[in-house]
Design a protein around this nucleic acid. Sequence first.
DNA 1: CAGGATCCTGTAGGATACTG
DNA 2: CAGTATCCTACAGGATCCTG
Lengths: 111, 111
Amino acid sequence: MERDQTEELRALQDTLYFIGGKWRIPVINSICNGNRRFREIERSIPGITTRMLSKELKDMELNKLVKRTVYPETPVLIVYEPTEYCRTFGNIIQEMISWGREHRRVIVEDR
Amino acid sequence: MERDQTEELRALQDTLYFIGGKWRIPVINSICNGNRRFREIERSIPGITTRMLSKELKDMELNKLVKRTVYPETPVLIVYEPTEYCRTFGNIIQEMISWGREHRRVIVEDR
DNA sequence: CAGGATCCTGTAGGATACTG
DNA sequence: CAGTATCCTACAGGATCCTG
């Protein structure tokens, strides 16, 4: 118990603040998985609404998590790409996926 | 893109469902750090209210994340301990802490 | 110390419809 | 396709006070 709990907690809460919200992690995951177009990302995350995805993407762009590119073809083509920064969540996401896999039965019981 | 996105996403969302909420992760972290008494845990997490901590602990007990033991001394002594199950979040929490540390400056800017 | 009981509010997020 | 615009509300979570 000699560790600095306060500093640890701050780091933890910074992260939680950043990846909070119901859809942030799924959206990061989807984009890092190679989904690029709006509808494509949307379809890859059952349950999300266009409104929420729209908000997430806008916010993620502001926070430098995705790059949005417009190709002025007809119809217009819009592509989202994960930034390097976005990929720094890779470890957390992988840990979450593997936790979810290992504990699926336990969770499922009481849902 | 040959991976099963759906299965991955399900695992991810199971985990998110389980550790969701503002205080769950901080509370798990606190207990895993060795805090045992109610007020002790409370003090280790600035900002949390007795109400929220109470709810979290109750819920975590139901979900087998903590063991609550009553020692009938006077005044009564109550001790919370993390279960092995609780400790399975160790990796996720460590990844979150290290992400938070590495990216502190970036976050701090826009808060 | 270890909580329980109340009251209250903001806002995350859902539903639905529409546009260029 | 790629979103915007509205409207709406449940509920997470804060503030406070109280009790054995």
